[in-house]
Amino acid sequence: MTAFAHCARALGGIVGREVLRFVHQRERFLSALVRPLLWLFVFAAGFRAALGIAITPPYETYIPYEVYIVPGLAGMVQLFNGMQSSLSMVYDREMGSMRMLLVSPLPRWFLLTAKLLAGTAVSILQVYAFLAVAWVYGVQAPPLGYVAVLPALVVSGLMLGALGMLLSSAIRQLENFAGVMNFVIFPTFFLSTALYPLWKMQEAGELLYFLCTVNPFSQAVELIRFALYLDVNLPALGWTVLALAVFLGGAVYGYNPARGFLARKAGGE
């Protein structure tokens, strides 16, 4: 057996397991779908009157607020999924199946990357389900945009998953994770271009504008937004890939057996 065949089989197994688990956890799917839909049906509908969106790329005309917010909500689906899969890693590790994964005869970076790909695959299923409902609701991008958005979703999903994995390696106990959800997810989401365009933030203040600009989640959202409208945002792509590299590198370091991070966790048992 070649190393390549081994890796391919293992990757298939890891992604397959995650998708199977996802299929079995209907509540998780439902909540992943209901969350962005609430924002779309309630928040965006109410906000439409309050917020006018000037013509900004990639849009070529004035757009209703619902149209603006959809790519950001697609990003939110992936953000939550990334945090949830790392939550499940902390949980998994305590339950032992993460241990099972880590004692496999494969390099640890490969196992972590495979796990990341598996989480991303699930997040993409969730995003497409959301986009389908949004389509029925009337937020419709060009048909080809739904194909073009796929690679963007892969990159953004990996980046947000890697962020979650990095956090899971840095957090000592499960209890602390709820705090991280509040301190990571909400600031990440609100300080981004998901809800308001950058220029709107600039009107609000330079500091907010700056934070929104450097937030990797903004870059991911813009990447998705442009791809959905058949455009490529190269800077957004570059920043998202860079953030992915940094977060993934940090996570692999965090899970390095010699660093003994797992040891400190196990020590609490």
């Binding site: 293992a10 199977l20 305590e94 339950m95 032992g96 199946s97 241990r99 496999s104 005869p105």
Partner: peptide
């Protein structure tokens, strides 16, 4: 390895659990 804590996926079948492990070991 058999760990002290259970490490099976409760929602998956016995067969799916075993095949997942086999895949990690590169078994066809």
């Amino acid at each position: 390895v058999v760990f002290q804590q259970p490490t099976l996926d409760l929602d998956l079948t016995v067969r799916q659990n075993l095949l997942y492990f086999a895949a990690l070991h590169g078994i066809p």
